[in-house]
């Protein structure tokens, strides 16, 4: 059987994301830039959640790994290391390496432990940041992070920052897409019937650990993108409560394909900005939408659109 590296859903996702290069051609609106930037960070973070959700595991650890990726870049910037390729690799690899021992440990246990431990993990990361002011700047964070450089040229303008965030989101989508396509059978087997998959010879915990490590790396890219957008690494950017936002993006978007996290993030980031200055109420909307999706529209936005399409055609 031929194993595809990318399918049409990944291509549509990449096409949607490439809007980051198109929109600046038409508008210089600060609001549009800001919403898109948020969406690109959100998409990467949601893809990190989605990887684990492919195996029926809900991860609350995204902000923790975002923090590792984000602070890695900020600290490197303090040492005048700003090269785009180097930083992208570091923002992916450092959190991924941290995830290796954690994943090996937690994923041998039952799924429920995974959820609980990831939740506690993102709380602990906050404490760690506050407890290590020498490294992370503690509650002040690291401000004035140097702009990223590509082949020596500084990507300093709003438009270049946006385009860079867009590029990072596409890289994350490629990584996520290739992983979930290549191991599609493994992940789907675990999702649907873990016991059967295991008895057929699949080392289930190893694939969960693999997914966890890549998800951590992808989250690290989200942290990088966030720090690059704000030019600051601050503990509040990686608050554990944001884990719920990324979970909401993914579930509301739908878990069947990578279009889920992309569409879900787009829709919810847009909706949140409609609240204007009352952004703190957005989580209530997320809560209601999660209830609706779980009770009435299991496929989320992407799944419902696919179902509608099948009915029409």
């Amino acid at each position: 059987m031929r194993i595809k590296l990318l399918g049409w859903t990944e291509l549509v996702a990449l096409l949607l994301l490439s809007s980051g290069f198109v929109v600046p051609v038409f508008t210089r609106s600060v609001l549009a830039y800001s919403v898109l930037n948020q969406a690109f960070v959100g998409v990467i973070a949601a893809e990190s959640v989605w990887i684990m959700l492919r195996m029926n595991l809900l991860s609350f650890a995204t902000p923790a790994f975002m923090a590792i990726g984000g602070y890695t870049v900020a600290i490197a910037g303090q040492h005048n290391i700003t090269d785009a390729f180097l930083m992208t690799a570091a923002a992916f690899l450092v959190p991924a390496l941290v995830a290796v021992p954690l994943g090996a440990l937690v994923l041998r246990l039952r799924g429920t432990y995974f959820v609980l431990v990831t939740f506690v993990l993102s709380q602990i990361m906050q404490l760690l940041i506050f407890e290590t002011p020498g490294l992370t700047g503690g509650s002040n964070g690291i401000s004035g992070v140097a702009a990223v450089t590509l082949f020596g040229a500084e990507l300093g303008t709003n438009r270049l920052v946006l385009e860079y965030a867009c590029g990072l989101a596409m890289v994350a989508t490629l990584i996520t897409g290739v992983l979930t396509r290549y191991f599609h059978q493994h992940f789907a087997g675990i999702e649907e019937n873990e016991i059967l998959a295991e008895s057929l010879g699949l080392a289930v915990w190893r694939y969960k650990a693999l997914g966890f490590v890549v998800a951590a790396g992808v989250a690290g890219l989200a942290g990088y993108s966030l720090v690059n957008m704000l030019l600051t690494a601050h503990p509040s950017s990686f608050d554990s409560s944001t884990a719920v936002d990324f979970i909401a993006y993914t579930i509301v978007g739908g878990r069947v394909s990578i279009l889920g996290p992309v569409l879900g993030t787009g829709a919810l980031v847009f909706a949140t900005n409609l609240f204007g200055t009352h952004g703190q109420y957005a989580q209530g909307l997320y809560g209601v939408l999660i209830l609706v999706v779980v009770l009435a529209a299991r496929g989320g936005i992407a799944g419902s659109m696919a179902a509608l399409w099948r009915r029409v055609s």
Partner: peptide, 17 residues
Amino acid sequence: TFKSVSVNENIARAVRF
């Protein structure tokens, strides 16, 4: 079996795993 997929996919998974 893996209930949501085809007979073919079930066999393919068994062979691959």
